[in-house]
Write a protein that binds this DNA or RNA. Structure first.
Lengths: 185, 185
DNA sequence: AATGTCATGTAACTAGTTACATGATTTA
DNA sequence: TAAATCATGTAACTAGTTACATGACATT
C-alpha cells in the first residue's frame, strides 16, 4: 500500500465520475485554474502508470471514431475508495502551515465525491484549524514585527490577512450549504 | 552554473547579513512563519553542501565558547550576487499561476537586500501581474461556474478573492513605501 | 553513569524536471 | 507531400523524504 502523491490524488479526483486520457488531463492542468500542477508528460504519464500498477485506475483503449487512438482511464472501486478516504482525512493545523493548496484541492472535489454533508464537516474543520492557527501567527507578529525588515513584516501581514479571509470564506460557505440543506433536506 | 532550488534561495536569503549554522536554519523553519519549508536535516544539510560546492556560501568552524562545535555559514560575494539577481527577476503572470509562495518569499527578503526602491518596483510588477491574471480567472469563472460542482466553484471563488486581496495589499504596501520615502528621501 | 538534547550528517527511495523520441492524424 | 499538432511515452538528472547513524555536551 504505497503512498499516493498530490498529483496522484489530483488525477484520481479528476477521474471521478468521468473517463479521461492522459492528454485530456494534461490539458486540464494547462488551461484551467489547476495550473499549480505540472502539465509535463514526464509527470503525468508516470503518475498514471503508478496509479494503474496500484490498481487504483484502469486504462482502456478508446477506439471511438472521433478520438485518436489512446487510452482513457477510469477509477476502479479501490481507487474511488482511496480518493474518498483522502478526502475524509481530518484537517490539521499542520496542513495550514504547510500550505492550504492541498486542502483547497481536497475541497474542490469534495462535494462531488462525498456530498454536501461531508463538505460542511470539512469546512467546519477548516475554519477551526484557522481559528487555532491565526492567533499563533498574530502572536508571532506582535512579538517579532518590530525587529523584522519592513518587507518581511508586510509579507507576514499579507499571510495573516489571507488566513483571515479564508476563515470568512469558510464561514460564508458553511452558511451557503446550510441554507441549501434547509431548502431541500 | 547550476540552478538553485527554492530552499537554496531561502537559505541564501536567511544568511544575508548574518551567519547561521545548519541547526539555526532548521529551527527557523520549525518555529517561525516559514513553516512551508522542510526542517528535516536530510533537506537542509545537502542543500547547504550544494551551495558551498557552488561557492555561494562558506562555512567556518565556530569555536566560540558559548556554542557547541559546528559550522556556521555566511554568504560569499558570489552568493550575495546570486541572491540579488534572483530578487531582481521580473514578476510574471506565470509566477502567479504556479503559486505566490515564491514571490512572497522573494518579497520578504527584498527590502533588506535591495532596499526600498527595488521593493516598490517589485510590488508594482506584482500588482500588475495580478491585474493581468485576475480577469482571466474571473472570465474562466463566469464561463464554467455553472457546470462546476458547488465546492469546486467555491474553491475557485476563494482563489479569486485571494488574488483580489493580494492586489489591495500590494497597493497599500506601495503607498506605505511611498509615504516613507517622501518623509526621508 | 545514564539519559536527553544538540548538531551534523548519510543512505535508500521517490517523484518531479527537462529534454528527447516516436508515430499517428490533420491541415495547408 | 510537408508541416503542425495530437498523443504517449522514456531517459537522465535533481532535490526532497524518511529513517537512521554518530558523537559531543548537558542534566539528573
Amino acid at each position: 500500500m504505497n503512498p499516493i502523491s498530490q498529483l496522484g490524488y489530483a488525477l484520481l479526483g479528476l477521474l471521478h465520475g468521468q473517463t479521461l486520457s492522459g492528454y485530456d488531463l494534461r490539458k486540464i492542468f494547462t488551461s484551467t485554474a489547476m495550473g499549480s500542477f505540472s502539465d509535463s508528460p514526464g509527470a503525468i504519464y508516470p503518475a498514471l502508470a503508478r496509479l494503474e500498477n496500484q490498481a487504483l485506475i484502469e486504462g482502456t483503449v478508446a477506439d471511438s471514431a472521433s478520438m485518436r487512438k489512446g487510452r482513457v482511464f477510469h477509477l476502479t472501486p479501490t481507487g474511488a475508495e482511496a480518493l474518498r478516504s483522502w478526502l475524509q482525512e481530518p484537517v490539521t493545523t499542520d496542513d495550514m502551515v504547510r500550505g492550504v493548496g492541498v486542502l483547497m484541492l481536497r475541497f474542490a472535489f469534495m462535494d462531488h465525491v462525498l456530498g454536501p454533508a461531508h463538505t460542511v464537516c470539512f469546512l467546519r474543520q477548516f475554519a477551526e484549524a484557522i481559528t487555532a492557527y491565526l492567533p499563533r501567527l498574530e502572536l508571532y507578529f506582535s512579538i517579532n514585527s518590530a525587529k523584522m525588515p519592513r518587507s518581511a513584516r508586510l509579507a507576514l501581514g499579507c499571510g495573516i490577512q489571507e488566513y483571515a479571509m479564508r476563515l470568512k470564506w469558510a464561514e460564508s460557505s458553511i452558511q451557503e450549504y446550510e441554507r441549501e440543506m434547509r431548502e431541500k433536506p
